[in-house]
Design a binder for these strands. Structure first.
Lengths: 166, 166
DNA sequence: TATTGTTATACTCTATAACTATA
DNA sequence: TATAGTTATAGAGTATAACAATA
């Protein structure tokens, strides 16, 4: 059946065993040794705050990322947004359409590629994005309030080292 | 090279950069200043590797977390798993049932609470979990290979500082 | 009355296949 | 042929309401 390899390596560092954990006290020592577990928990915690603040502008997290990239890359195409944010093209269509319906962005013919459309912020979009970016910057201190400025800088550097393709 | 701009009809919005970014070069400088953006990217990168390795055991990431918590907390209840992993009770039912059908876990009457069921690993479940935990530990070095051991330790400490309650 | 485990269900997010028009 | 944008749709993940058994 599940003929397992007889490789009995030492399991994780075991902790004083409570046979039946009472309410509330759960041993998470092993999971907390894993970068993936901690990174996921931390990102969910920060993004939870992010979502709340962005809801004021009627933006989801991805909406904000798209608008911010458009602000700093006028004329960017959907394809470039997809590649940068790891979003699949079909999943960006509705998002772009909604932003356009709200009058925040404009789609113009691409100057050098007839297939593509250049994405541009409208004045209203620029205004909203500037406000949202300011909110995002302010939020950093609140969402990571337990970190010193130096720790925050170190954290970002190490995170980028993890996910940067090289 | 004489960079003479004879006429500037309209002042550029904010960024003096290339009005039409060519393929591939997208300015992500602002997003990269945000902890949330970097944490999400890093967690997705690590968990992507995690998913691939766990697929060998027929486990998803949450399956692994559940089995690991059961290994270190024998008799843990569904409710405790939900509280620890931030999973809603209805979303854990099918997961537990599937692990039971595979013969990896057992549900026994809780010794002190007639409503609850204590969750226990079967011998097969213990064996699989031990292997999966070893794989998870090995994976750390691969998924975060660009970090030194000291950096990895620092990263985990800072991430926990971000998401730890109180 | 409150809580555990559960069912049913809805909503969101993500993934795949295929079409069109341009290159 | 390859790519940009799009449509339709399937699947996974996450959410709320409500119920029976027990505290």
């Amino acid at each position: 059946m599940p003929s397992v390899q007889p490789i009995k390596k030492k399991t994780a560092p075991t902790v004083p065993a409570t046979p039946t954990p009472p309410t509330g006290s759960v041993d998470t020592a092993f999971l907390r040794t894993l970068v993936g577990y901690n990174a996921r928990r931390a990102s969910l915690a920060v993004i939870e705050v992010f979502m709340e603040r962005m809801a004021v502008y009627g933006l989801k997290v991805v909406d904000f990322s798209v608008l911010s990239l458009m602000a700093h890359n006028p004329g960017i195409t959907s394809r470039q947004l997809c590649a940068t944010l790891d979003v699949l093209p079909p999943n960006l269509v509705g998002l772009i359409a909604a932003l356009e319906r709200r009058g925040l962005i404009e789609r113009r013919p691409h100057p050098s590629d007839g297939r593509a459309l250049g994405l541009h912020l409208t004045p209203a979009g620029m205004d909203l994005t500037a406000q949202a970016e300011q909110t995002a910057a302010d939020l950093e201190m609140d969402a990571t309030g337990r970190l010193t400025a130096a720790e925050r800088k170190t954290l970002i550097r190490l995170l980028q080292k993890v996910y940067s393709r090289g």
